[in-house]
Design a protein around this nucleic acid. Structure first.
Lengths: 379, 379
DNA sequence: GTGAAAGCGCTAACAC
DNA sequence: GTGTTAGCGCTTTCAC
């Protein structure tokens, strides 16, 4: 029965020290970290037990209304702030989740992070953002430092192998975004449908040949997009081909323009919006205009897609919803136990038509002159 | 003397429980959270005291090399991972700092965050990114949830009042970026010099009238940039005027084009690069070309500045260095005590000349036709 | 509804 | 060098 003794000693110590500290602060010396006020301080002042103070905050309702009110007032007066670290130690819950992204400079992730943050905040969780900077190594080390400090993880973008992902998903709840990993809960967008919508739109505009600008080979999204394109093409009497891979950013698109211009088609679908935007630039430098000479469709509908000229027609992925959904999944796993490791959750897409697509060679209107007229059909 | 008893009880409990747990896991039932391995487990297995295990990890060198090696091996075998929460509770250090930004979609902050993250990682700290989403309210609530959980804070962008900032800087080490707040350590860039460089460049190109596209009125950077522009102009026989404020993003620049076109000048300096990029778009829609008709200079040198057409001439702020410097400051305050609250640390700038600036009306070359020729000089 | 006491996993005096 | 011991501030049975 030593506990009581220990506590008694501590309390007397506090009682006298508190005075001393207060005096010193009043004296003007100590400014930073003047010792935090704890539930013990509040308890003493309010004439209740520390455990009651604890309940008053973490389990309102389990304590007499009047007492609770008094405690709140005292706490306010004393400037009490719950210490999340202490709470985390005894509950084994930090109320933080990690969101891992590939690149903080990639606008694609901005909206996802927003959605994740909102969903987390709504549940009383804080998001710890980890930027992998497109590096497997950095991603691992960031995760290394992080896993132990969070309750769950959203892999919004990951360069790690499937098995590495399965590994950490054994330690903490993990949800993978935009990638299907066996044995791990996933949230993906409906790429097949997106590809079909894009092709239908192009077919309706009279296009017959479509070039796909490929993204990173390691990208799961790239794989499904290209496959879906190929599968949807025949029914629409369309022919598709693939060039690349290109780095999925604006410079990558500029580079793609060079390769594309060597054997152009009247329509292009790009792996993502950045690549598409880069392509417009690259083509412009060669006198090839979008949509006059080439119709172009991107993927993702990042914010910039509607700002560029011409406005980019694109397959809109619900970025914000992706972040929010994935986050809610981890949260559910944290609270409820295992998440359904079955089929990935599929989020809907829609085609946003802007100004980068037009009828092939201005069918029904005066034919264009210059570069466009000279474009040979590939294949 | 109850401590020993308590510990003894705990240890026996662990000893038997550990076995039971292991069996259960082997049985295939429990996967997540099978009870973490602690220093006690390692200590017992290695035949040393828990404190020795603790030292072996947190203070290598203070323990016999052979013992340390053995401990490391045992820890590895058992899959021991230090619990940062427990460590934080006893040391009152979480080894995390918060970096508050205005908007995660704003590319300006991407590099700053990178710099902060690198500097933090180098010191064994983790960055907790807090996106204020341009909202005072959200910023406060994010900070509210965060202050208690971190050792220090970098305010990379803040919509809070000076007094609110001083308030939290009393609770935790805070460094303010790109803003001068009395009584708080600050890191700013040399805006006066940047403004002078911009004007000198324009003057050398033969320009005489310069329009400044203003950013947010609450922005400290906007204030210093405009003031510096005004102060440097006379010596260069330049006349400057100011229009705005505009929202500091691409749409803001498009909007600025409308107002600017009503009374154009041959040269423009924009509050930031996004505004400048938007202006190019807005002017293009009106048939006014950059740099043919108007020379344009931005601020910050965000990544996109060299990707747009024409490449943007801009006053380059050392974004990465800003984040790293500010972070090192908080870190120093955390370790060392108070930071120097004196004059703000000033980071150097340089002018990056690209393609958005040219000689006024193509001096010495054929005069331009069309819109440019019709531009009246304001004032 | 409230109090007493144990304990979360780690660090840090303080002995030896 | 290493062990012993007392907390860090909170939550949580278990009594009453």
């Amino acid at each position: 029965m030593a506990g009581p003794v220990v506590r008694a000693v501590r309390q007397t110590t506090l009682a006298s020290e508190a005075m001393a500290r207060t005096d010193r602060v009043a004296g003007g010396g100590v400014a930073l970290a003047p010792r935090m006020v704890t539930i013990y301080d509040v308890a003493r002042q309010a004439g209740v037990a520390p455990s009651t103070v604890s309940r008053a905050f973490s389990r309102p309702g389990r304590v007499n209304a009047a007492t609770a009110e008094r405690i709140r007032r005292v706490a306010d007066d004393l400037g009490y702030r719950a210490n999340p670290v202490a709470r985390a130690l005894s509950t084994a819950r930090t109320n933080m989740i990690a969101v891992v992204i590939l690149d903080i400079a990639n606008p694609f992730f901005a909206e996802i992070v927003r959605g994740a943050q909102a969903a987390a905040a709504a549940a009383g969780y804080t998001v710890l953002l980890a930027d992998a900077q497109e590096s497997d190594r950095l991603e691992r080390s960031a995760l290394e430092r992080t896993v132990t400090a969070v309750d769950g993880i959203v892999l919004a973008g990951s360069r790690m192998s499937d098995s590495a992902i399965r590994m950490i998903s054994k330690q903490k709840p993990v949800v993978v975004l935009n990638r299907a990993v066996v044995d791990a809960p996933c949230v993906v967008t409906d790429n097949p449908r997106g590809a079909r919508l894009a092709l239908e739109h192009l077919a309706a505009l009279g296009h017959e040949h479509v070039t796909y600008l490929a993204g990173p080979e390691a990208s799961w999204a790239d794989g499904t997009r290209w496959r879906s394109l190929r599968e949807s093409a025949p029914a629409l009497s369309l022919r598709v081909r693939r060039i690349g891979p290109f780095t999925p950013d604006v410079p990558g698109g500029v580079q793609a323009a060079e390769q594309f211009a060597a054997a152009p088609t009247s329509a292009v679908v790009a792996y993502n919006d950045q690549l598409a935007i880069g392509l417009v630039r690259g083509l412009a430098a060669r006198g090839i205009r979008v949509p006059g000479d080439v119709s172009l469709i991107g993927f993702d509908n990042i914010a910039a897609a509607e700002l560029v000229t011409p406005g980019l027609t694109t397959v809109a992925a619900p970025l914000y919803a992706q972040g929010a959904t994935a986050t809610r999944h981890v949260l559910a796993m944290i609270e409820g136990g295992r998440g359904h490791t079955g089929a990935p959750a599929v989020l809907p897409v829609r085609l946003v038509v802007r100004d980068s697509t037009a009828e092939r060679h201005g069918v029904g209107r005066p034919r264009p002159v210059g570069a466009a007229a000279a474009l040979p059909m590939a294949r």
